[in-house]
Amino acid sequence: MKLRKASALAAAVLALSLTATACGSNDDDEGSGGGGSGDGDSLTIGIKFDQPGLGLKTPEGDYTGFDVDVATYIAGKLGVSPENIEWVEAPSAERENLLKRGDVDFIVASYSITDERKEQVSFAGPYFMAHQDLLMRAGEGVSNPDEINDLTLCSVTGSTSAQHVHDDFAPDAQLQEFGTYSECLTGLESGAVDALTTDDSILAGYAAQEQNQGKFELAGLELSDEPYGVGIPHGDTELQEQINDAIREMEEDGSWQEAIERNFGPANYEAEEAPEITETS
């Protein structure tokens, strides 16, 4: 496990102040971001910034969503308080790079566990099971996968969603990629695309937003199983075990269910029970 201490600059300032005087203040080793206070460990965690219900950065600078709650709970079990967490945006296309470069300690960002991804990074969990679906304009839904062939699908760069639908269900469907789900939603509203495809949990979060209510609806197609895992550096079995233990505790003490109801309840989204943990060393 790679917990980040206070920055080198803050440590140097503290050392100089202790040399100069025996009554120095602790103010200089307080990080201005999420880097911690120097009195304990801190964590840098990757999340999504634009996924309502899962990982969202609000205009006020707060972070909300189920993934944020899971990450905060895990951090607490690792001895890190919420104020010592630095949140880093983890776009789908950058998640592996963030872990391989060491820019984050772990990632909780609707990160589906796949064999291909496990060649580059490791996972703990899963902590949630989603299913791929379509979000469409209200009244324009489809009733079966064959009808998807006539649609232009949108998903985000680095996500497997649109390609999965194209390869397994609708080879004639047109694919359109944008950098974020919010851009896809704008394209859906304007008519540039016919459907946004990704996990039903993500789609439900968008559909439930006040400004979107009545505009969009889920097709109700379970096109795949998407087990969400916590992305960690490849081969870090110690961190994997610690996170798995934290996930189990979150489920057992009721915090997991509380987070589900808090984040998905307003969307009338019925999540499955917590999945069995499969990612072990």
Rank of each mutant, 00 (worst) to 15 (best):
I243P: 15
E258R: 11
L153F: 02
G179Q: 12
L218W: 01
Q240I: 05
A274W: 11
L188I: 02
G187P: 01
E272I: 04
P233W: 01
E241D: 15
A204I: 11
G187R: 10
I202D: 00
L153D: 02
G187W: 06
N144F: 01
L223C: 13
E273H: 10
I247S: 12
A208W: 00
P227S: 09
L175W: 10
I260T: 02
G141P: 03
T280W: 06
Q257Y: 02
I243R: 15
S159N: 11
A219K: 01
H166T: 03
D245S: 15
E226R: 03
P171S: 06
G229E: 05
P266T: 04
R248K: 11
G158E: 05
E241W: 11
D199E: 15
Y269V: 08
A267F: 07
S224M: 10
Q163C: 04
M250P: 15
S190K: 08
A246D: 08
N212W: 06
V193W: 06
H166D: 04
F178T: 14
Q174W: 00
L175Y: 07
D253G: 08
E276Y: 08
E241T: 15
E222S: 14
Q257H: 02
D200S: 15
G231Y: 00
E258Q: 11
E217T: 12
E210D: 12
E241L: 14
D168Y: 14
E222M: 12
P266Q: 10
E270F: 00
A208E: 05
S161P: 15
V142F: 01
G214D: 07
T186H: 07
P171Y: 00
T278D: 07
E222C: 08
E249Q: 14
S255L: 10
A274T: 12
T278M: 09
L153A: 03
E222Q: 13
C184W: 01
N144W: 02
D172H: 00
R262F: 02
S281K: 13
A170R: 06
T152N: 04
Y228P: 03
